[in-house]
């Protein structure tokens, strides 16, 4: 007996830059069982309704990472997203190509920017020529060493995180969540000899543009949790190199700032992060703000029990203790 079907109204992004003046949405009406994957529905559209629909896919099993696209504006693998819940929530299924990548045609995006960002992090083991890896026996790792990069090898390079990332959208200097998660994987690999160089190289303009918004972690179909790996990288970068640019300076300045009073001293933070030059640069904006919010000029009152906070710093942040 055939499974019960539901009406599945699709609105699919169509665009051929060589021919069309602008993109359009094309509607298709299907009737399918609710557990049908979006990819299966699109292939049915192509086979039965419209052979001109262009999309990229391969394995249909959430392994190859080819069919990432927007399903009702969320970055998803089409093969892993069932139509039932989408229709229940939105009443229809709107399918778009991924964001942050140029459209080649319909749902197919140009992946080169994604891959060139991946290449930026040198995604391969860099071995110390003085200590080459043995070729006649396996290199062993302890379970603890392996546990540090448990999640990252699951990445299938589908670019769903890249598509979901607001930092990628706003600034081409940011390499994207996937590249940084992969970088983390090599940084913590005990066989890699370039840990420090990797951390130094990624800092200017790259690492510290992550917003910690965790949109990549929500989008990732494989549980790589790129935003959390980037947090790990920031900590490792600070340990390896200290504060070398605005992002790392800001993180350390904020930590020092809270140590002083237990509560944020807003004005002081600007100077700690950017120096007196930074205060000067912020002056016109600062004057605008102070007119409406005069408290900015005041030093906040120290919290009660500040010495308890100080003690926690002494115990858990000893390298900073003077």
């Amino acid at each position: 007996m055939a499974a019960a079907t539901i009406d599945a109204p699709f609105e699919v992004y169509r665009f051929d830059p060589a021919k069309d003046p602008s993109p359009r949405y094309q509607r298709y009406s299907l009737s399918l069982p609710p557990h049908t994957p979006v990819l299966t529905a699109l292939l049915k559209i192509r086979a039965e309704l419209d052979p001109s629909l262009t999309l990229r896919y391969s394995c249909r099993s959430a392994i190859c990472g080819s069919c990432a696209m927007l399903v009702n504006s969320k970055s998803r693998l089409a093969c892993q997203t069932q139509i039932g819940p989408e229709i229940a929530r939105h009443g229809r299924i709107v399918v778009d190509p991924m964001r942050n990548l140029p459209v080649l045609r319909d749902l197919v995006t140009e992946m080169r920017p994604f891959w060139s960002n991946y290449r930026r992090i040198e995604p391969h083991l860099i071995v110390d020529p003085e200590r080459p890896m043995p070729v006649d026996k396996p290199t062993t790792m302890t379970p603890e060493q392996v546990a540090r990069f448990e999640e990252t090898p699951r990445c299938i390079a589908c670019a769903a995180c890249y598509s979901a990332c607001p930092a990628v959208e706003a600034d081409p200097a940011f390499p994207g969540p996937m590249a940084l998660a992969k970088l983390y994987r090599f940084v913590v690999d005990p066989r890699d000899a370039a840990t420090k160089q990797r951390l130094v190289k990624i800092q200017p303009g790259g690492l510290w543009l992550c917003l910690r918004c965790h949109l990549c972690t929500e989008a990732c179909p494989k549980g790589v949790r790129p935003s959390e790996r980037i947090m790990d990288l920031k900590e490792l970068a600070l340990q390896a190199q200290g504060a070398t640019e605005a992002g790392s300076r800001h993180a350390l300045a904020f930590k020092d700032n809270i140590r002083e009073r237990g509560i944020l001293n807003e004005l002081r933070l600007v100077r700690q992060t950017s120096g007196y030059g930074g205060i000067l640069a912020q002056l016109p904006q600062g004057i605008r703000l102070v007119r409406k919010k005069p408290e900015i000029r005041k030093t906040p009152k120290e919290i009660q029990g500040r010495e308890e906070v100080e003690k926690l710093y002494e115990i858990l942040d000893p390298e900073e203790h003077s």
């Binding site: 947090m231 900590e235 600070l238 800001h250 904020f254 858990l316 942040d317």
Partner: peptide
């Protein structure tokens, strides 16, 4: 920001 610098703290 402190989470970036020292997550345990």
């Amino acid at each position: 920001f402190i989470d970036e610098a020292n997550p345990t703290l």
